[in-house]
């Protein structure tokens, strides 16, 4: 029994030593990465200084062209959208951004990731290297109290991302200028209507609604103009009832809510899409111009 306990202790001591070393190395590589997503996120959190920021999921990342926004508004712009993410990551980003400076305009692209109930822990992944930043740790604790313990481990802090951290430091891949990632394929097939979309009960995620409200409140408190948009989907429908919670919040805080999901000019044209929920570059350019026209109409001083 004594040998067993001694060996267990030795094993965990070795793990602790690896954990500490790995944490120091990964944090350094994260903060000095030279390309790819790690670099983009570090830029957003620690170095961005643009006037206009785009937030949201992959639909934000692929649908808003910063060059067009810059040309139209005469303001600098950066797209912070991240695949498979939504309000929780965006709120974390905004906390870190507003601790450094106040952008002038925020365009938030609302997607299903911001509404439906699901496992919110996954939206914290990209924030793990910034856990020590003010306000970020409490975001973790409110979503998953166990992270208070789990984040003590550096191996966990860089869980999954460690390979990307290494890759982005030693062999950096392209960092898309201003965060926008264009898609160049065209949907060459007619999508079927998915059964799962018909008559399925949508459960609204109260945590996401809470952070959506916090996001708007923080932006308003810093004097930032916020616009909430829903970008086009192929043959998109009119506003579904499950959007009402978000629309109510927008109304409450006087945030313009712009719905383009079924914008005829774009959503009925297959050539503008890579897949039913993502515009290709041509579609994104059309959409950005269309959206800007409306924003300028709503706020001519921009």
């Amino acid at each position: 029994m004594k040998i067993f306990i001694r060996n267990l202790l030795l094993f965990f001591l070795a793990i602790i030593a690896i954990d500490i070393t790995w944490g120091i190395v990964c944090q350094y590589l994260n903060d000095h990465s030279k390309g790819g997503g790690i670099r983009s996120r570090y830029y957003v959190c620690k170095q961005s200084n643009e006037d206009v920021l785009i937030f949201g999921s992959s639909r934000a990342k692929h649908h808003y062209v910063p060059e067009i926004i810059e040309d139209s508004l005469g303001l600098s712009c950066y797209n912070t959208g991240e695949d498979g993410n939504g309000i929780i990551l965006s709120y974390g980003f905004l906390r870190m951004i507003t601790s450094r400076y106040e952008p002038k305009v925020i365009i938030y692209d609302i997607s299903d990731y911001d509404i439906y109930e699901d496992d919110n822990v996954k939206y914290l992944n990209y924030l793990k290297p910034y856990y020590h930043e003010t306000g970020i740790d409490s975001l973790f604790w409110s979503i998953e109290p166990k992270t208070r313990l789990m984040m003590c481990s550096n191996l966990y802090r860089f869980n999954t991302t460690c390979l990307r951290v290494l890759g982005n430091y030693f062999h950096p891949i392209t960092t898309y200028p201003k965060g926008y990632m264009p898609l160049y394929n065209t949907m060459n097939w007619e999508p079927k209507i998915e059964k799962s979309d018909i008559g399925t009960e949508k459960h609204i995620d109260s945590i996401k609604m809470h952070y959506f409200e916090q996001f708007i409140m923080l932006a308003k408190q810093k004097g930032i103009a916020v616009f909430c948009c829903v970008s086009p989907k192929y043959k998109g429908s009119s506003i579904p009832s499950y959007y009402s919670s978000i629309m109510n919040l927008c109304e409450q805080y006087k945030v313009p809510f712009l719905y383009y999901c079924n914008a005829k000019e774009i959503s009925n044209n297959r050539d503008y899409f890579q897949d039913p929920t993502h515009l290709n570059d041509e579609g994104a350019r059309q959409y950005t111009s269309l959206m800007l026209r409306d924003i300028i109409k709503l706020q001519p001083e921009l």
Binding site: F11, K122, L155, Y156, T160
Partner: peptide, 16 residues
């Protein structure tokens, strides 16, 4: 043993 445990913590999917 140490490599496997470290890989679980670094590369494992540790969600719910």
């Amino acid at each position: 043993y140490v490599l496997l445990f470290s890989m679980v913590l670094t590369l494992g999917v540790l969600d719910s």
